[in-house]
Amino acid sequence: MTTAVDEQVWVPVCDYAALEPESGVAALLPGGTQVALFRTGDGAVHALSNLDPFSGAMVLARGIVGDRDGVPVVASPMHKQAFDLRTGQCLDDDRVRVTTHAARVVDGWVEVAVT
């Protein structure tokens, strides 16, 4: 089911309708990688590593989605650090950034890129 585009492999994950606005879900990629998929209120889809780097727990998908000064963020459910949904940058500690994945919607399906 995978397709190669510019060295990226797009993995179809789920029906776009399975994502609720301003919410996240966890997805399991081939090889065991966990991503947190978010749909923001404007319809955009973002994919971050599900691993909360501060606690070592796979929980970012269960954080609250919102914005900080207009930056779309998810707040870790463990200790509330906020991460930029677009870049993975932690807004509370500039030394910390979580891995991001490109994400897109094709024919109503959400796809995540793995490199």
Binding site: V13, C14, A18, L19, V25, A26, A27, L28, G32, Q34, L37, L51, P53, F54, S55, G56, A57, M58
Partner: peptide
């Protein structure tokens, strides 16, 4: 997992302490 609802989270594991299960924490 949204794409694997029946699959348990592989990152979660336990060890025994005083006869009960306690979490094994992932390296940070």
């Amino acid at each position: 997992f949204v794409n694997a609802p029946g699959v348990p989270d592989p990152s979660i594991s336990f060890r025994a302490e005083r006869g009960q299960r306690v979490p094994v924490l992932l390296p940070v």
